[in-house]
């Protein structure tokens, strides 16, 4: 780890003033410290935001939904009884983070801002893993890489556990920066970088996520399903989150978002269309899963992920509808 300076502001404004080129935000730190130890992140200044009181707390308000402060930990989210009732998709996503140690300090906002798990990236080859003008991923060990949105130049997968569920629920982020505060839908927060100069999400070096705003989920059935290699701490191989607005026993409208299959959380209008106007059954859910991966293209070693993504979508839909998966 390189040497750095450390600061611990108590207001959002001081944090933003400290940030900028060469500075990084430290909250839970579970991802940042790993990146710093690998010399993938080499900041001059680490800005600890954990003492900023206004970034704490999770609140529900009638009608307008939930506000998750940037410092709310995964554990705090899991313990919240109203989240358990209204947002099972968030609880199921949190449940996949199988480490009490990470849940204690890791934050929901930090989950969105964690960097990809791509092993080329983590070993210092950059987000795009280019060598001599060609991607090392395409002919390399790409077994955990993208099956959708993988026309290049990026092949990593978005690592967030919560992003698919938050996008399916229509959540947005509040971001503070030198020009004040702005709100951005979680769906628009992520991007596929086109060059090494770009990041996989739209947050400049001088901005911080301050809040996550989740609309009320009343009347919306929602669920997440992750397919994983093992029970213990690991990132899923494929995941899907769904949010269903029902009319009687028919799906009036649906949002289906896949995780860990593309450089961004992958919104599938095809899967949503396959559900519209139908009563949920195993075969309808399977059709939606099939539709979700229709455009999928395997790299040399990750064909298995297409089937896993299809199953994740199917099971997330069944789980949301309260049916056996």
């Amino acid at each position: 780890m390189n040497r750095f300076q450390y600061a611990s502001p108590v207001t959002k404004q001081s944090a933003v003033e400290l940030l900028g080129s060469g500075a990084v935000v430290l909250a839970g730190g579970t991802d940042l410290l790993s990146l710093m130890k690998a010399d993938v992140a080499t900041p001059d200044l680490v800005v600890n935001i954990k003492e900023i009181a206004e970034l704490k707390g999770l609140e529900h308000s009638e009608g307008s939904g939930m506000r998750i402060g940037a410092l709310v930990t995964i554990d705090e989210l899991l313990q919240d009884s109203r989240v358990q009732e209204e947002y099972p998709s968030l609880i199921q996503a949190a449940d996949g983070i199988r480490s009490a140690q990470i849940r204690s300090v890791g934050t929901v906002a930090g989950d969105l801002c964690q960097r990809p798990r791509c092993w080329y990236y983590r070993h210092g080859y950059g987000l795009l893993a280019m060598q001599n003008g060609a991607s090392m991923v395409v002919d390399g060990d790409n077994r955990y890489h993208a099956i959708l949105g993988n026309a290049g130049p990026a092949y990593f997968v978005n690592p967030s556990s919560f992003a698919p569920a938050l996008i399916a629920l229509g959540a947005s982020l509040k971001v503070s920066g030198p020009n004040g505060e702005k709100e951005i839908p979680v769906a628009d927060f992520f991007q596929t970088p086109q060059s090494e100069a770009e990041k996989e999400y739209k947050l400049s070096d001088s901005e911080i996520v301050t809040q996550i705003l989740v609309p009320a989920a009343a009347g919306k059935a929602n669920a997440t399903y992750e397919v994983r290699e093992r029970e213990a701490l690991d990132w899923p191989l494929a995941a899907a989150a769904v949010s269903l607005t029902m009319q009687g026993d028919q799906v009036e409208s649906a949002k289906v978002v896949l995780g860990h299959v593309a450089p961004v959380p992958w919104n599938s209008d095809e899967a949503a269309a396959a559900l519209k106007g139908k009563a949920v059954s195993a075969s309808v859910a399977d059709d939606a899963g099939k539709a979700a991966v229709q455009q999928a293209k395997a790299l040399s070693r990750n064909k298995f992920k297409i089937q896993l993504a299809r199953v994740a979508v199917k099971r997330a839909i069944l789980r949301a509808a309260g049916m056996e998966v």
Partner: peptide, 27 residues
């Protein structure tokens, strides 16, 4: 592992389990 994965550095911080390798002493 020194990367917040194996758990052998687990300590309690204010009663909660944490990976001591993934927290700065100053924090």
């Amino acid at each position: 592992c020194d990367r917040g994965t194996c758990g052998s550095c687990t300590v309690l911080m204010d009663g909660k389990p944490v990976y001591a390798c993934s927290i700065l002493a100053i924090e």
